[in-house]
Computed example of a mutant assay.
Amino acid sequence: MAALQVAWARHADDILAAQRLRYQIFAEEMGARLAPPRGAPAGHDVDMFDAHCEHLLVRAGGEHGPVVGTYRVLTPDAARRVGGLYSETEFDLTRLRPLRPRMVELGRSCVHPDYRSGGAILALWGALAEFMFRNRLDTMIGCASISMRDGGHVAASLWERLRQSHLAPIEWRVRPRLPLPVHELRRDLDVEPPALIKGYLRCGAKILGAPAWDPDFNTADLPMLMRIDDLPPRYRRHFLGGG
């Protein structure tokens, strides 16, 4: 496996490489129906938020290698400029207003299938933690997606399980704009969270409420929140060196 290098996008070509990977994962692998803006290049996942975001990339084999993992980060200042967060298209985030001055949104996370054994996502998380610390930000939110290829039963069962163990305090709860109809689905399946959600939970993340249904991506999206102060000591040492 090639050595991994993590860096923030500095040029338009870096962002295009991330958007190509996103298209490969979301459209070709997951079957998402993307609706890019007019003039967007074919074979790229592009939306109105991209121009306002910081893009984090993992490349295989050095700074000129292919992009094999990516996140995008919308900072509080950028969210004000663009008029809101991507998550607000799926959830009413009114109760999070007190957190917003130091809250970033993570989105469009994906890793190439050949690099999903853990190294790429840990590299991304380490750079994200350093970014948060350096910019005096303390809260991350985002939508964690669960495939709906089974009709939604896994997502409903996962919500039923996690609401009992990882639900956020009432003052941070949010409401989906298009709720997943969990009461019409099986909620008793013995399911494990996807690797990304499991990783978030290990880092102290909380579920902010019931999942939304995203018909374009054919996913159920769980709203999640993670605070730097809630990082368990071993992850704090790993990502921040104890800082």
Rank of each mutant, 00 (worst) to 15 (best):
D45I: 03
H64P: 00
V6K: 00
R59D: 01
E171N: 09
I170S: 13
L96T: 09
P66T: 08
A18E: 05
V68Y: 00
L4N: 05
Y200R: 02
G142V: 06
R20Q: 14
P113T: 06
E54D: 15
E29C: 05
G107V: 09
V68D: 00
D14V: 11
G243N: 09
M226N: 09
P169M: 01
A205H: 00
G31N: 11
H112Y: 02
L196T: 02
Q24G: 03
M48Y: 10
V191C: 13
A51L: 12
D92P: 01
F217N: 02
P101W: 05
S109K: 05
Y86P: 07
P233N: 03
M132F: 06
A144N: 07
A144I: 07
R108M: 10
G61R: 12
L34T: 06
T219E: 07
I207K: 00
G83C: 08
A27P: 03
V73M: 12
L196M: 15
D216W: 07
R149S: 13
A3P: 06
M224K: 07
R72K: 10
R116Q: 12
V111K: 02
A40R: 04
L137I: 11
R149T: 12
P193V: 04
L106C: 14
C203I: 03
D13P: 00
Y23A: 09
L196K: 02
R136S: 13
E184I: 01
D229F: 01
N218H: 14
R97H: 11
R161Y: 04
G243H: 07
M224Q: 06
M30V: 04
L201Q: 09
G61D: 07
R234V: 12
F217Y: 15
R163C: 10
A40C: 10
H166I: 08
R100G: 03
